[in-house]
């Protein structure tokens, strides 16, 4: 069996193929009858190189997708918890996700609220809906959105 070369090795990927399913399928294809057929036909020292060069064109990771396509994927996530998790996966996903987020729900825990609102608006520049839910408010939560807070919020709106 010819040795396997990995010309498509990417930055950040392990040297040897490991657990991911895509890499496993490469290993399977490499030992398939197609590979041995090439071996007989070409009589070359690196017969598998041809197959792998072909395969490498197909090999693609999520991070290879352009922003427009990552946005298409993110737009299909509706639960805030999924968006929050995704935004902590990579800096790039974080930046795409924050541009897309158009609604956010806030409870009583924000203090001081004006500071939180300012930082919130700078993180999510395209919000169209901010929902405050003050049910369950207790005095120790501190003063929530008052006139000054509303003024700060409105000054963040474009």
């Amino acid at each position: 069996m010819p040795r396997v070369l990995w010309p498509w090795k990417r930055k950040g990927s392990p040297d040897a193929p490991s657990g991911t399913s895509s890499l496993r399928s490469f290993a399977l294809m490499e030992s398939s009858p197609v590979a041995s057929e090439h071996e007989e036909v070409h009589h070359s020292e690196y017969p598998v190189l041809i197959d792998i060069a072909e395969l490498s064109q197909q090999y693609c990771m999520m991070d290879d997708l352009p922003d427009a396509l990552l946005s298409e994927i993110i737009k299909r996530l509706t639960r805030t918890s999924d968006l929050n998790s995704l935004s902590l996966v990579s800096k790039r996903l974080y930046n795409i996700e924050r541009e897309l987020r158009d609604a956010i729900h806030l409870g009583c825990g924000l203090f001081p609220v004006t500071l939180a609102v300012t930082s919130l608006c700078s993180r999510f520049p395209n919000l169209s809906k901010v929902e405050f839910n003050y049910s369950g408010w207790k005095p120790e939560h501190g003063i929530q959105l008052d006139n000054h807070g509303l003024h700060v919020l409105s000054s963040c709106c474009q």
Binding site: G12, T20, M61, M62, D63, S85, L86, L88, V89, S90
Partner: peptide
């Protein structure tokens, strides 16, 4: 992606 933690998403989608 749905229902996964950031670490699980990284593992599933092959992010370092």
């Amino acid at each position: 992606i749905k229902g996964k933690s950031p670490m699980e998403i990284r593992r599933t989608l092959g992010f370092p």
